[in-house]
Simulated scan of single mutants.
Amino acid sequence: MEHLSLGLVGYGKIAQDQHVPAILGNPGYQLRAVATLGPPCPGVAHYTSLEALLAEGPAVQAVAFCTPPQGRHAQVRQALLAGKHVLVEKPPCASLGEAMDLVELARAQGVTCLFAWHSRFAPAVEPARQWLRGRTLRSVAITWKEDVRKWHPGQAWIWQAGGQGVFDPGINALSIVTTLLPDPLFITAAELAVPANHQAPIAARLRMADAHGVEVSAEFDWDHAEPDVWRVVIVTEDGVLRLEQGGAALFIDDIAQPLPAEAEYPSLYRHFRQLIATGASDADLQPLRLVADAFMAGRRTQAAAFLD
Rank of each mutant, 00 (worst) to 15 (best):
W159T: 03
W159D: 03
W159F: 08
Q160R: 14
Q160K: 12
A161Y: 03
G162R: 08
G163Y: 01
Q164H: 14
G165W: 11
G165N: 07
V166Q: 05
V166Y: 05
V166S: 02
V166F: 02
F167S: 00
F167N: 00
D168S: 06
D168C: 02
D168A: 01
P169K: 02
P169V: 07
P169D: 06
G170V: 13
G170A: 08
G170C: 10
G170L: 10
I171R: 01
N172M: 01
L174H: 04
S175V: 00
V177C: 07
T178V: 06
T178S: 07
T179C: 14
T179H: 13
L180T: 11
P182S: 08
D183E: 15
D183I: 00
D183M: 13
P184H: 08
P184D: 09
P184K: 06
P184T: 06
P184M: 06
L185E: 10
L185F: 12
F186Y: 14
F186R: 14
T188R: 15
T188F: 04
T188C: 13
A190L: 14
E191V: 11
E191Y: 01
E191F: 00
E191S: 13
L192H: 03
L192F: 07
A193R: 04
V194C: 09
A196Y: 12
A196P: 12
H198T: 13
H198N: 14
P201Q: 08
P201F: 09
